[in-house]
Structure formats: C-alpha cells, structure tokens
Computed example of a mutant assay.
Amino acid sequence: MSKNRKAEEYVSQELEPKLFPLLLGESSLRPKRLFYKGALPEKDSIGIAMVGTRRPGSSAPELCRRLVHSLKGTKAVIVSGLAQGIDSYCHEAALEAGLPTIAVIAQGIDARIPGERADLARRILESGGAILSEYAGDQASLKGMFPARNRIISGLSRATVLVQSKNKGGALITADYCLGEGKLLLAVPGDFDSEVACGPNLYLDCGKAKPIFLPESLRVQAGIPLTAHSQEAPSLQNLAHTGCQLSQEATMIFTKFNGFRKTFSEIQEDCNFKTGNILAILTELEIAGLVQTKDNMQFYFNGSL
C-alpha cells in the first residue's frame, strides 16, 4: 500500500470484480459493485476481520491494541467497519502498529463521514489503507446497508475475530456470515456476567468459535506466518541483541507478571520492593518495551517469553 499522500488527494474509483482485494473476489458474499479510496493491499496480504460492539467495556482499547499488535511482522490487513467502539479501536491499533487497515462503510464512498470517524478515515487513507463501499457517490446510510456492509467485511477476510459484543448486534451478523462461508471464527472469552462478553461467550459455548486466550495466539490460530524480515516483539530472549540489559529486579518482576495487567498497588503487594524501587523498575521495563501504561495506574506486562 502506498503512503504519504493527503486524504483529499484520493479520488473514489470503481473496481472490476476480478480486482476485488483480499478474498472478496472468491467469496460468495461479494457485491456486484465495489468502490474504493486509498491503496489496496498487496496480493499476498491476509485479511483479518475484527468486529464488536459500539459500546464496549473499559478494557476494550487495550484489548484491541494487544490483539492487533500481535500481528506485527506479518502480512495481516486489519478489516473492520469504521464504527464507534471496537471497530475504531482496531483501526487505531493498526495505525499504531504500522499495519495496513481497510474500513468498509455502510454509505456512499463519497458521502461525508461524521464526527471523529472522519479523522480516523483520513488517517487510514494517509497511512496507506483503504476505504471501501458497494455504494457510489454520496448515498446516505440506510438501515439495511449495515448488514450488507458486514458481509463484505467477512468476504474480505480469512478469519473473523469477535472481540466484544452483546447478545445481539452487527458483529454477530458478521460472525454468521463468516460461519456461512466456512471460514474461521475466533472469539475473545469474557466474564459470564459481562454484557459485552455475551456474544463471544455464546459462540464459544456452542462450539461455533475458537477461543483466543492470549493475544499472541491470534496469529497462530489464524495461520499467519511471520515475514522473513520481521523482528520479534521485545522479550527477555532477544533484548540482548538490541544492547539492552535488564537488572535482576526488573527481570524478576517482568517474569512474575508477564501477560497480565497490574495496578501499582498490586505490584507493591506482590513484591518486596520500596515504592521508589518499583517506580525505577517500571521505568526500566517501559524503556525496554516490555511494559505499557497510559495513566501510570495500570501496567500491562505484555512482552513475550
């Protein structure tokens, strides 16, 4: 995908069916017409649909970020619907990770996109991604266009990931399209009393979806190989190659909490270090890329061992 162009420079174009991107041309769900702006993915790219509710839980941004970042170093293209919530979080995570992303919209390809979604669409185009629609011009959204949009999301993709969803909604429609094509449906398990976990848990409980218990398992479950020139995520094994050496205390804390989210208080309770020492260790781990935090209250130990 080409980059470094302003979004307004992209003029909408119609695609011939034989040029439909990813798996859409082979799909029984392919539309008769398809319009796009931006740059289409390379032929050997692998579409991964990531969908969910517009009103997800508070952990959703980090959940989407970890899932998407687990695909760094692959030919994955993140496909979603540019809606609020899970869709936008996944597009955002792809931009952050440097992965191409495709947004399929339920309106005319030239219709105005309102609110913050307009800025996200602009950034997708400028990063080398694409906006797709089966509707020409400035056709406004109608209710029936959203299920139709969802079938294209599934049709483009090798697998669909159900991140968070209530027991009804567009994400489940996409999941059903995925199953109808005989494609792989993956789902993130959640607490059984969480409303936004109802959808994934339902499909997992009846055996229609396979679970993703760890973000890192997404790539393996979907059968996406690392590219030959890819670099591994920061880990204790490969940090030495970068010239970064952790202290004994930092190594111990990372090993203890790897793969988990911890508050500062929880770290204090589980470790015998003074407050100043813990702060120094967390800073060391952040610099090494093994710990992330946005608010200095919750710390994500999500490197790989």
Rank of each mutant, 00 (worst) to 15 (best):
S2G: 15
R5L: 15
E9R: 07
S12H: 06
Q13K: 14
L23D: 03
S27A: 02
S27R: 01
F35P: 01
G38P: 04
P41M: 06
K43A: 12
D44R: 09
A49V: 02
G57L: 12
A60Y: 01
R65W: 10
L71Y: 11
G73K: 02
T74E: 08
K75V: 00
A76R: 06
V77Y: 10
V79I: 14
L82P: 01
A83Q: 04
A83C: 09
Q84R: 15
S88I: 05
S88K: 06
S88W: 05
S88L: 09
A97T: 09
G98T: 01
P100L: 05
T101S: 13
I105R: 01
Q107W: 05
G115T: 05
G115H: 06
A118Y: 07
D119N: 08
D119C: 04
S127P: 05
E134K: 08
E134F: 03
Y135R: 14
Q139Y: 14
G144L: 07
F146P: 03
A148W: 03
A148H: 09
R151T: 08
I153D: 05
L156M: 02
R158I: 08
V161M: 06
L162E: 01
Q164N: 08
Q164Y: 01
G169T: 12
T174P: 06
A175Y: 03
Y177R: 00
E181V: 11
E181M: 05
L184C: 12
L185C: 04
A187W: 00
S194T: 08
S194R: 09
C206L: 14
C206G: 09
A209Q: 04
K210L: 14
I212V: 13
F213K: 07
E216K: 10
G223N: 04
I224V: 10
T227S: 09
T227C: 07
E232H: 13
P234D: 06
T242D: 11
G243Y: 10
G243D: 09
S247M: 10
E249Q: 07
I253V: 15
N258Q: 12
R261S: 15
E266R: 09
I267W: 10
Q268I: 03
C271N: 04
K274H: 04
G276E: 02
L279A: 07
A280R: 08
T283W: 10
T283M: 03
L285A: 10
I287N: 04
A288I: 14
T293I: 01
M297C: 04
Q298D: 07
S304R: 06
